[in-house]
Amino acid sequence: MALDTPNTARPAFDALYRATAADLYAYVASIVGDRATAEDVTMAAYERAYRRRRTFDRSRGNERAWLFGIARNAALDELRRQRRSAPLFDEDMLAAAAPADEPEQRLAVRAALAGLDARDRELVALKFVAGLTNAEIADVIGTTSTNAGTRLHRVVAKLREACHVPS
């Protein structure tokens, strides 16, 4: 079933856009690691989704996972083209969010987030920032729900260890 019918074409896509814009941008930025590139990729992702909205098949996942999958492909294509690294989160944002009197535990978690590899960072972005379910994450990254859950569990375990730093 397509994302929309002739009668619901714009409203359905607009609703999807409004529900996902901020999360999608954050997710794309977590992959490409650059604001300008993230903006280009986000724009491209929405345009691709708009052009392909009639090919959306609900039996293969919900529209949110479908959109994030498109964005992931666009981001990885761009990343491959640029061949450059992607820091987990915006460095400026991290610096701004780290006042001097920050508790040591918070700083440790932030360092742990920054130390994650690209695949783990992607999982954190999809789970904690975009709020996708494990099944949706599996659809986006092209793996099984079990595999996605196992990998997510492993990432959360790492981050929990960072929380154990004595304050």
Binding site: E39, T42, F89, D90, R106, L159
Partner: peptide, 28 residues
């Protein structure tokens, strides 16, 4: 612990600039 991780992840997540948000809005 999850609340701490969630807070840090969301704090560190980049947000769209108003200019880009407006451009995207118009494009959509």
């Amino acid at each position: 612990e999850i609340a701490l991780i969630l807070g840090e992840a969301r704090t560190a997540a980049p947000t769209m600039t108003p200019a880009f948000a407006d451009t995207l809005e118009r494009a959509v």
